[in-house]
Simulated assay, not measured.
Amino acid sequence: MTNPNDPPALELRGIDMHYGYVRALDGIDVQVRGGEVLGLLGDNGAGKSTLLKVMSGVHRPTGGEILVHGAPAQFTSPADSTAAGIQMVYQDLALVDAQDIATNLSLGREILRRGPLGWLGFVDHKAQRRRAAAELDRLGVRTAAVTRPVEMLSGGQRQVVALARGATRVTGERGGVLLLDEPTAALGYEQTEQVQQLIRRLAADGIALVLVTHNLPLALAVCDRIAVLNRGRKVADVPAAETGNDELVGWITGARASMFAP
Rank of each mutant, 00 (worst) to 15 (best):
R33C: 08
E247V: 13
L248I: 13
P116C: 01
D26G: 03
A185N: 04
I199K: 06
T143C: 07
V123D: 05
D43F: 06
V22C: 08
R131K: 13
C223N: 06
I199S: 00
P78V: 12
G35S: 06
I101W: 00
L163E: 03
Y189A: 15
I226S: 09
T76P: 01
E190W: 14
V58N: 03
R225W: 03
G57F: 05
E135C: 06
P61K: 06
T50A: 01
T2S: 14
I28Y: 05
T147W: 10
V150E: 08
N215V: 02
T253G: 03
V150H: 07
M88F: 12
D237T: 02
H214R: 10
P116L: 15
G108R: 07
S258W: 03
P61G: 05
Q91D: 10
V170T: 10
K48V: 04
R114T: 14
E247N: 11
I86E: 05
L117H: 10
A84P: 06
V249R: 09
D6S: 15
Q191T: 11
A221I: 08
L198I: 11
I199W: 03
V170F: 06
V30C: 09
V212E: 01
L248Q: 02
Q157D: 13
T103H: 12
P217G: 12
R200F: 02
A144S: 13
M88L: 15
P7K: 09
D205A: 14
T168G: 09
R138H: 14
E173L: 06
G39M: 09
G108I: 11
G14H: 06
A240Y: 08
L93H: 06
T213V: 08
Y21G: 14
N44P: 07
G47F: 01
A145V: 11
G175C: 00
S77H: 12
A208K: 01
D237F: 07
L107C: 09
D205L: 14
L51W: 02
I66L: 13
G64K: 10
Q159K: 04
V68W: 01
A162N: 08
S49Y: 04
A240S: 15
D16F: 09
V30Y: 03
S56N: 13
P239G: 13
P7I: 13
P4L: 10
I111L: 13
V170D: 02
L153W: 08
G254F: 06
P239I: 13
Q197K: 09
G244C: 03
G14D: 12
I252E: 10
H214K: 11
L179D: 07
R13Q: 12
K48N: 02
G70H: 07
L211W: 04
A164V: 12
I86R: 02
A83C: 03
R174E: 13
R225I: 05
L220D: 04
F75C: 07
T50C: 07
H69L: 01
P262A: 15
K234D: 09
A24W: 00
A132K: 00
R158P: 08
R200N: 07
L218Q: 14
Q91S: 07
G244W: 04
R109W: 06
G42W: 03
E151G: 10
D92S: 14
D100T: 12
A257H: 11
